[in-house]
């Protein structure tokens, strides 16, 4: 579908907005509806669009497999790592109050960071699974 000029131009126009919206849902999820799960899927959908229009080889050039594998594991590790950090700072597992001097700021930081972990894992898993489907089609 790469040869279709309308598709490739529209995809190029849409991609930044989809990614921006994903980041908005990710980091504004505390205040407005949203969070890591939704943002991850929206982020991945931008790359699904990219693969559909430009093909899998071009997409692999931008986000290689190893990066996705790192993202899949890294998100879970970030989430669990925040939990363990709470333990190391002398509190319970996944207790964010101790992450900063003020408990409120700690909660803020903890929620933003674990949502980031959730978003990373979800986006990487959806993109990697879509890559795998496209590849086994060949």
């Amino acid at each position: 579908m790469r040869d279709n000029i309308v598709l490739s131009v529209v995809a190029r126009l849409l991609m930044p907005f989809i990614l921006l919206f994903a980041l908005y849902v990710q980091f504004h999820g505390e205040v407005s509806p949203g969070g890591g799960f939704q943002a991850g899927v929206i982020f991945a959908s931008a790359f699904v669009l990219f693969v559909l229009v430009y093909g899998i080889d071009a997409a692999e050039g931008i986000i290689p497999d190893g990066f996705l594998r790192g993202g899949i594991a890294g998100g879970v590790l970030l989430y669990a790592g925040i939990g363990v950090l709470g333990l190391l700072l002398g509190s319970n597992f996944l207790d964010y109050n101790v992450l900063a001097a003020d408990p409120k700021n700690g909660q803020h930081l903890g929620i933003v960071l674990i949502e980031l972990g959730v978003g990373t894992t979800v986006a990487s898993v959806v993109t990697a699974v879509f890559y795998a489907f496209v590849r086994s089609k060949r």
Partner: peptide, 19 residues
């Protein structure tokens, strides 16, 4: 310090479940 109660419950009170 999060105005969205859904996120607060999901990420803080129910952190284990979300993990």
């Amino acid at each position: 310090a999060s105005p969205n109660v859904v996120t607060a419950v999901l990420a803080s009170y129910r952190g284990f479940d979300t993990l």
